[in-house]
Design a protein around this nucleic acid. Structure first.
Lengths: 191, 191
DNA sequence: AGCTTAAAGCAAAGTTGTGTGCTTTAACGG
DNA sequence: CCGTTAAAGCACACAACTTTGCTTTAAGCT
């Protein structure tokens, strides 16, 4: 059994472990961005990272686990809440788009969705969880201010889903203006 | 170079080729449905199909190519247009959901999006193309009747994207009622 | 019916990802 | 500063997927 603890300070977080973790993360992220998640292998990551393949196998076990680990710590750079529902939704829509658009963004999304059948649901739930939580926080805040924001499902359908769809399919004109427009359209319709 | 011509009647479409094609398609589809596209290999498909692996390699080249070939001919069972915009949109929304929901549906979607970098865009475009074309037809028909239907982009954002998103993430209550509701909601908002 | 030739079968070799025992390194704690 | 011990390196074995040359089958044609 491999300990994939995302906990940054493991049992011996000192210099070497942290350094290896960093170079491996970087190498994997780069390769995914360059070739796509399907064309990346553990040996390839190991070589670029200047690390032995067995190290990766022992620490992460599988490639999807490694990618999930990377994706997990990517997601903690969300924008600050402003106190205004519209601005918050628009900001997070734009951030979601930006996060997904950067090199390898979609690849990571797909990598997380891909893992072995047993863990698939876990990966999916976690991925969705991260997306949902950010928006949920915004909606909760609005509710506490006495407003009646749209439901989370509605936000997923009208903001998140279109962004994912358009990024996956590389539809043109999928930019920040578009993302913010989704937020505005949703609030307009509900008013 | 392998000829992956989707053309059903190739150079020698007679008994054997067609039979092999059929059993391989069926075996691959079954395996994808059972294990998910990631757990399927060419040798496994070959064994279940009672065919030699080299046959598959020679005819299709790669597994993604095989799956794409299967997906390509899956898509030609769309519902009949009724002449009513709302009904057509709702029908196609429901059909899209059903197509995506059946065992292996998402797996095929992912397989098509996955192929090697060079062909990725082609796979994506084709996949999107198929989805778009069906809805485009509906919209065109409505326009010819003198109506002013929503744009294709709007349909993708408001109907197709949410369906894909919810199926990929296995969100609950993603059923025919929901799909049809999307169509109704879109037309309501535009009226 | 017999010839031609795609296309499938077969078998063996090549390549690559994966797993494991053992050694070596270097954090951490006293 | 030194002992302890995770964790990384290393080498090798193993398994799996791919590829390829050759043979055999059977569809298509005269």
């Amino acid at each position: 059994m491999v300990d994939v603890s995302a906990d940054p300070r493991a049992r011996r977080p000192g210099g070497r472990s942290a350094r290896v973790r960093a170079v491996v993360h970087r190498a994997a992220a780069d390769l995914v961005a360059e070739r796509g998640a399907d064309q990346v292998t553990v040996p390839a990551v190991a070589e670029r990272a200047g690390v032995n393949p067995s190290t990766i196998y022992r620490r992460w076990g599988t490639l999807p686990a490694l990618l999930a680990d990377i994706a997990a710590q990517r997601a903690d750079t969300a924008p600050e809440p402003t106190g205004d529902l519209h601005d918050d939704l628009a900001n997070h829509a734009a951030w979601t788009l930006a996060d997904l658009s950067r090199p390898g963004g979609v690849a990571f999304f797909r990598a997380e969705v891909a893992p072995d059948v047993d863990e698939r649901r876990a990966g999916l739930r976690e991925c969705l969880q991260r997306v949902s939580t950010r928006f949920e926080t915004i909606l909760d805040a609005a509710r506490e201010r006495g407003e009646t924001p749209p439901s989370l499902e509605r936000v997923l359908d009208r903001i998140v889903a279109p962004i994912y769809f358009r990024v996956v399919f590389s539809l043109p004109e999928t930019d920040e203006t578009y993302a913010r427009g989704l937020a505005a359209a949703l609030l307009d319709a509900d008013s």
